[in-house]
Nucleic acid binder design. Structure first.
Lengths: 245, 245
DNA sequence: GCTTGCTGTTTTGTATACAATTGATTTAAG
DNA sequence: CTTAAATCAATTGTATACAAAACAGCAAGC
């Protein structure tokens, strides 16, 4: 209602490569804002407000929101707007279980295909992880931890699986925000677990690698408190019989 | 206090996606048109033309196209429009390989969870499949064959995996259009394979079920001719020697 | 006092207008 | 006749205007 500032200066903006359209930038901003927990689950994402913030029209914002919605980190309700996803315990369990399925396949392929360079890269990532824990940079560690799994997917070399795992890893971050419980100390051991996995990959010990990966994901699941706060949707389950009649 | 969460929506659209808006209809039309091969790979999907056909503005069409693009059955090129995907041989291999990973996980879970009713449903689907083969309704059979795998995913009960498999199955259809080779007769045996899988599921013989499912997908892959017609890039390979001299 | 129905405001859904980019045709030069 | 540049047409990207739906506040009735 205040400034209708037309950003006419778009014509002479940074000499950036025109290749990509501007929405990629906005998408990246919002995506990382959600993953880094600067936008918490349940936050309403108003089209108008976001348009103001990024100085673009709602058209562009809507496109970005739809993309985020398809990746499940945002949920769009008809005529009522977009919100940062609040995964239910059931959804959370599905995501973790899906990761077990996908990452078992990935780790098997990695064990077969890994090169010496791959191992070096993974070990480099591990060092960064350790560093971020040491410096107590929690949100950075969350990102790095996810990157480790995605790096394995890259080595496996299946683009489709990599894309899917990326979705799952994103959702895992959201889930951790909502359901992380007790022992934070435990999380640091995750770093050791990554190290053990690298070792099994290096040794091309498929059985051990798979076992470690499964245990790793299960450990991640056990850190969560998925039983307490089943959301409001329960109400609808409870009353659906009555309402349906 | 306990947030005014918009879960009311769930009551209205019965659990499934956002929906309620007219674009779902258009999406379904285009999706099935692609899968049933009425739109072949490479076809240009002009926003204007589609808008004319469905009597809506480009706004709605763009939304649908983006959704299809995210599901990989349509590919959008910046400033140049949307086209029905033409999966490359590499992409095709990735999709089939991803299916092996995902469906192994699914079949294992199905073997554990299946109820008597599940078995009956699967057998019902099998009959329909056999019928469509008998009647030589090829495109119907393709759809039913995909539905069988998706039914298994439903029984496994993991929404995330089901959604992903749905994408993979769609892509598989597109791939078959592009790369199906020789022996069409072979495909009918697929129906027997489905029957064998049901039997292993019924008997809760996990090992056999997994083995059969893997063999089934591999058989599907072998029906394809993924080596011959590497897309246009081949031309460049072919002429690069000449042009380079 | 609590619920119920109405009205006004806010926010999303869709259509349309305009700008920018692509590619195709034409035209001119070698 | 071939090649290359320049203009033109067609299509997509973005902004904005208008329509419809949802939410909130207020008033009326029980």
């Amino acid at each position: 209602m205040t400034q209708i500032t037309p950003v006419v200066e778009l014509g002479r903006d940074q000499g950036r490569a025109k290749s990509g359209n501007q929405d990629d930038h906005i998408y990246a901003q919002m995506f990382s804002a959600i993953l880094e927990q600067r936008l918490s689950p349940g936050t309403k994402l108003s089209e108008d407000v976001l348009g103001e913030i990024f100085k673009v029209s709602r058209t562009v914002i809507r496109k970005v929101l739809q993309r985020l919605a398809h990746e499940k980190v945002v949920k769009i309700f008809s005529n009522r707007g977009a919100y940062v996803s609040e995964p239910t315990p059931d959804e959370a369990r599905d995501v973790l279980d899906a990761r077990k399925v996908v990452e078992e396949g990935i780790i098997r392929r990695v064990v077969k295909k890994r090169s010496a360079a791959d191992i070096r890269m993974l070990e480099g990532m591990l060092k960064e992880e350790a560093l971020s824990i040491e410096r107590d940079e929690h949100s950075k560690w969350v990102a790095l931890s996810g990157d480790f799994h995605l790096a394995l997917a890259d080595i496996a070399g299946n683009q489709s699986l990599t894309d899917y795992l990326r979705e799952l890893v994103s959702m895992t971050s959201l889930i951790h925000v909502q359901y992380q419980s007790k022992k934070i100390g435990n999380q640091s051991c995750s770093c050791e677990e990554h190290g053990d996995i690298i070792e099994a990959v290096r040794a091309q010990d498929e059985g051990t690698a798979v076992r470690l990966m499964m245990a790793h994901i299960e450990a991640c699941e056990e850190e969560l408190n998925l039983d307490g706060k089943e959301p409001i949707s329960d109400l609808y389950k409870i009353f659906s019989d009555v309402a349906g009649s």
